[in-house]
Design a binder for these strands. Structure first.
Length: 585
DNA sequence: TACGGTAGCTCG
DNA sequence: GTACGAGCTACCGTAC
């Protein structure tokens, strides 16, 4: 049963029912104008539902907006259990300046427990069905929550979600706690919910701060965006027309381009998988010395940048871009960014992202984090030693493979070694190494040579060899393998390359998320906010006069996070106070 | 006309 | 035997 509250006194009094609870269940219903385009600043919260094991109250925030004053200390003290709390926290923060930090998100929990988090659904109804086999009705979720009088059905629906949370929470906690966890969860979240799994504790801690990132948005120079768009647009149109006039070819018609290049220009092109002639950029690159090819590639590049500019323009609102993040976007725990994707902004456009007047950006990234993780993960002493001596790892690998002096390694040799080093993380084969060298550096090496480099690499870094062999054996035997990040994120793989890559990539995401949580907590009073996260990079927006202070906090956060998981390999990161995202280097 | 899958690009 | 992860657009074939 539930109680619908529209009276302030009753509302205040009702809170005493939760006196003894460490945590409460929470949900909100919001009057949203357009569900495809939710406006977290202008759409209004109608209901806040709060419950414990016995009671459920539905607070009508249209009737009692003053109640938020009482709710703020209450919700910021108690633990909060909810489903997809990023949504609720964004509204609580924007509507009432309420920001709970001790939370347990049942959606995140479900994702962490899933063997295939991308392919399974994690809506409240899906999770409820998976864990309790109860079907629930979500038809009222998008009903009109701005009606003067809410219907009985709406209220019943609003209360039901709390009831579902009550049922699934203990099941989720128990399952999370039964996962192996090499690190012990500590702190408020662990204490409040009895959550012992460290990965889950980090993810839960991250939920409020990811909510803030989305709510605050990434600052962009609107005027510059408009200007650059217009400029590039007219240049592109001019170049495109000029090209068609000159050569009679549409640079985007792959068929015609391939015919033109092979028949008219007499050049050779590789085949695509389906057997037709390939005219993708990489196939044309070898002929970049020819002016017509160079122009063609330039036009394609212009078009791509123009498309991206159009996309940014579309999402820009008053000098900011409010993107979305999927907290667990990949099985490795990496986030995904969408609407728009702020994690694949072309380098050439990063200068558009600019701190507003009186503000600065702090742009920070971990240096070669994945190689450092790999060295730690397999305890590869030769590589650990190189990192300890602060060597340029690619140059170092080249010098060992080629048996040359560290100083004598050429640029090309270093590039080659870089490919091998990266190949290590991805589980490269000699064949792909050969392909890579050819495609990316135009270096023609034979399969034999690639095999020799490959073998030499594993002679030098012995523990990597043993690691790879162990994985291969296990996979042959069982077809499947469970691997863990250094924090303990669990992933089941069936491909060799995944078994090699996942624990490394996942440890990187563990570190970044921990750093973001530390920063969020340390910088709370500074009014400084993370505005973007890109796998190994953190971008903070801060007032100019305290930028140095905030930079120190960020530095500490990144260091602490890294050192929790990397005990043998030193952490390294770059950090700069700038106006533009691309200002560093 | 709407949808699903793929290729090819961007980033890490 | 397979170099890892993501999102977005354009494009193409298929279903209605």
């Amino acid at each position: 049963m539930f109680e619908y509250i529209t009276n302030l006194e009753k509302a205040i009094e009702s809170l005493s029912a939760f006196e003894k609870d460490k945590f409460v269940y929470l949900d909100t219903e919001v009057a949203v104008k357009d569900f495809d385009n939710i406006d977290f600043y202008n759409d209004r919260v109608r209901l806040i539902q709060i419950g414990n094991s016995e009671k459920i109250f539905l607070y009508d925030m249209f009737s009692i907006p003053e109640f938020s004053k009482y709710l703020k200390p209450f919700l910021e003290e108690k633990g909060i259990i909810g489903h997809n709390l990023k949504f609720d926290i964004k509204f609580l923060k924007s509507n009432f300046n309420i920001f709970p930090e001790v939370v347990f998100d049942t959606m995140i929990a479900s994702q962490l427990l899933s063997e295939n988090p991308q392919k399974e659904r994690h809506s409240l109804s899906a999770v409820s069905y998976r864990f309790t086999e109860n079907m629930i009705e979500k038809a009222y979720q998008k009903s009109s929550w701005d009606l003067k009088n809410l219907s009985k059905e709406q209220l019943k629906y609003a209360a039901e979600d709390i009831d579902v949370l009550r049922k699934i929470f203990p099941l989720l906690i128990e399952k999370l706690n039964s996962l192996p966890s090499p690190h012990k969860a500590t702190g408020q979240i662990h204490k409040t919910f009895g959550l012992n799994n460290a990965v889950a504790a980090v993810e839960m801690g991250f939920v409020p701060f990811l909510s803030l990132i989305e709510l605050i948005g990434m600052p962009i120079d609107k005027e510059k965006l408009e200007f650059v768009y217009k400029e590039k647009s007219s240049k592109y149109q001019k170049d495109y027309i000029e090209f068609v006039r000159k050569y009679g070819i549409d640079p985007f018609s792959s068929q015609k381009v391939a015919y033109w290049i092979t028949s008219k220009l007499g050049l050779k092109l590789p085949k695509t998988q389906k057997g037709s002639l390939s005219s993708q950029d990489s196939a044309l690159k070898p002929y970049i010395d020819r002016p017509e090819i160079k122009t063609l590639l330039e036009i394609r590049k212009e078009k791509k940048l123009l498309d991206k500019l159009r996309e940014l323009k579309e999402y820009e609102k008053k000098g900011r871009i409010y993107g979305e993040f999927k907290q667990i976007g990949a099985p490795t725990g990496r986030m995904a960014s969408l609407k728009p994707n702020l994690q694949n902004i072309p380098r050439e456009l990063k200068f558009l992202f600019k701190a507003p007047e009186g503000k600065k950006l702090i742009v920070a990234d971990y240096s070669q984090i994945e190689l450092r993780i790999a060295a730690e993960y397999v305890n590869e002493e030769t590589m650990i030693k190189a990192f300890k001596e602060d060597k340029d790892l690619h140059r170092y690998t080249a010098s060992l493979i080629l048996d040359k002096d560290y100083e004598a390694v050429t640029k090309e040799e270093r590039q080659m070694a870089k490919a091998i080093n990266f190949g290590l993380i991805y589980g490269i084969s000699p064949r792909s190494l050969m392909q890579y060298a050819k495609n990316n550096y135009g270096i023609d090496i034979t399969l034999k040579e690639a095999e020799r480099f490959h073998a030499r690499f594993f002679d030098i870094y012995e523990n990597f060899k043993q690691w790879h062999e162990k994985i291969k054996k296990e996979l042959e035997k069982h077809r499947k393998l469970t691997v863990f990040s250094l924090l303990g994120r669990k992933m089941t793989v069936s491909r060799f390359t995944d078994a090699v890559n996942y624990p490394i990539q996942a440890t990187g995401s563990d570190i970044l998320k921990m750093a973001a949580v530390f920063f969020g907590r340390f910088a709370k009073e500074k009014n400084a906010f993370i505005v973007n996260l890109v796998h190994d990079e953190i971008i903070v927006e801060t007032k100019e006069d305290i930028a140095e202070e905030v930079k120190e906090i960020l530095s500490k956060s990144m260091k602490n996070a890294g050192e929790i998981l990397l005990k043998k390999v030193p952490i390294k990161y770059n950090m700069q106070i700038v106006d533009y995202w691309d200002e560093k280097e």
